[in-house]
Design a protein around this nucleic acid. Structure first.
Length: 102
DNA sequence: GGATTGACATCCC
DNA sequence: CGGGATGCCAATC
């Protein structure tokens, strides 16, 4: 567990319900502007061990970006349950739902 | 330790 | 918005 991972986890925990954040944004706040892919890796590790709102983390295009069908399906349900409109069952409006931290 | 890989980002069109 | 090309960084092979 390095500092980067801790910061990423902390940031993800701060995402309010009904909002989403991009990997790049989280990576930047965590101190690694180009560490988006590491954020992905953290999510994979932590989501299986801890209960993080990983479903609120999406990519720049607003896509959910999940590869596994089951996981992807679950994410869509979680987002809709929080009041987020999922377009084409795979995308959301970043302009409306992206969380902008101070 | 080099090559491969991945829930991505950014630029270009 | 969105598909293709290129770049980044760490874990894994």
């Amino acid at each position: 567990m390095n500092l980067f991972t801790e910061r990423v986890v902390a940031i993800i925990k701060q995402i309010p319900s009904g909002k989403v954040m991009t990997y790049g944004q989280i990576a930047r706040l965590a101190g690694s502007p180009r560490g988006a892919r590491q954020v992905v890796r953290v999510l994979h590790s932590m989501s299986k061990k801890y209960k993080l709102p990983w479903f609120r983390v999406i990519n720049s295009k607003g896509e959910l970006g999940i590869n596994d069908q089951e996981t992807h399906e679950a994410q869509v349900l979680f987002l809709e349950d929080e009041g987020i409109e999922v377009i084409d069952n795979k995308r959301v409006s970043l302009e409306k739902y992206q969380h902008h931290p101070e």
